[in-house]
Amino acid sequence: MFRAFIGIGLAAAAVVGLWAGGETLASRRVAELIAGDPALQATLVRPLRQPPQFGMRIEQPAFADPAGGIALPWAELQISPQSPTTARLILPEEGQVTITGQAHMLGLDEPHATVRLAPLKRLAPDHIAVTAEQVTLDSQPVIEGLDLDMQMTRLGPDAPLAARAAYQARVGVGAVQTRLLSQMGLDLHGIPDPVSLGGDVLLWLDGTPSVRGQATPSVVGWQTEGLTIGAGPMSLRVVGRIVRDPNGLAEGQVALYTADARQMIDQASQMGLIPGPARMLLSAGLEQLAKTPIDADLPGPDFPEPAQGQVRLPVQLSGGQILLGGIPIGAAPPFGAI
């Protein structure tokens, strides 16, 4: 998801960065960016020609990969003379989403997106903000509220060795209807709805996003001091740090804070994330697992003590294994799967 939003930022940066060259040159550059990415399509990229606004109109933009796709009838990128380093992405309120080969009507209620460019940072998107009141599929609400804010920040001394840029992201996703998405063919492993997500995440990238670059950078690590996830009646707060190891697997340490630990273990087992024997072992030794200390030698944020009624379950991912409370429970997933 974050890679897609960074890609949006690069397209907007092309408009802002080529202000002096005119709309025609900017349109050509965005067309080149789209043509150079096999996942993107557009039938036409043309100058906006609506002074005093500067920008372009993209006809039938689309994104597709093996997991699915999204297509819109049009999209516009605009900047004004009063704010020459900030671009607005104007989107229609309807489009189409493809899930497991089936097309569904997409509805966007009051979508808004802005990108601010940093001229002294190789025309990198310095700030990206995306919001929508509601997202529907086939006229049925699937997301109640979407809010993403990404601000470029300095690369601190604790950043992964592969990191070349960092963004502080604030994420807010409300009431995702997983049952409806499952009925449409999306395999969500029986996650109960509604699902919600909220909190701050520090993202590390393997390059600085720039319209002058040849490829969109990838996320190589993340860290959070508190990301709250809700799923049906269950809720947990995630604190920790995960990075991509040399083999492309997830590596690091997180702590799960929850009052619904047993339900979560059962749900994870139903999803196939925890084998049956491990589920029984974890459930039986839950109180002891919650006493497992945090590994202070691993880099990451501060891990607070759990609130009253909660348990804190330390999870380490190391050497290709997942350890919960020091007990191996399975293989570490690819970094991109988290």
Rank of each mutant, 00 (worst) to 15 (best):
F2E: 02
R3T: 04
I6P: 03
I6K: 07
I6H: 07
A14T: 04
V15T: 09
A20T: 15
A20S: 14
E23M: 06
T24K: 08
A26F: 05
R29C: 01
P38F: 05
Q41T: 12
Q41R: 15
A42I: 11
P47V: 04
Q53T: 13
F54P: 03
G55I: 06
I58T: 08
A62T: 07
A71M: 06
L72I: 06
P81E: 00
Q82A: 12
T85H: 12
L89I: 13
A103Y: 08
L108M: 06
P111F: 10
K121E: 00
R122T: 02
R122Q: 10
H127L: 12
T136P: 11
S139I: 08
M150R: 05
M152Y: 12
T153Q: 04
T153F: 13
P160L: 01
A162V: 09
Y167T: 01
Q168M: 12
A169M: 06
V173P: 10
V173N: 03
L180F: 11
S182C: 10
Q183A: 08
H189Y: 14
P192A: 14
P192E: 02
D193F: 10
L197K: 07
G199C: 02
L202M: 09
P209H: 01
S210V: 00
T216W: 09
S218P: 01
W222T: 01
E225P: 08
G226C: 09
T228Q: 09
R237I: 02
V238S: 01
R241Q: 03
Q253A: 06
V254R: 09
V254M: 09
L256R: 15
A259G: 13
A261R: 09
M264L: 15
A268C: 13
P277H: 00
L281W: 09
S283Y: 12
G285T: 12
G285M: 13
E287R: 15
T292G: 04
T292W: 13
D295Q: 07
F303G: 02
A307W: 11
A307Y: 09
Q308I: 06
V315H: 02
G319R: 02
G320R: 10
L323I: 12
L324F: 10
G326A: 06
I329D: 02
G330N: 12
A332P: 10
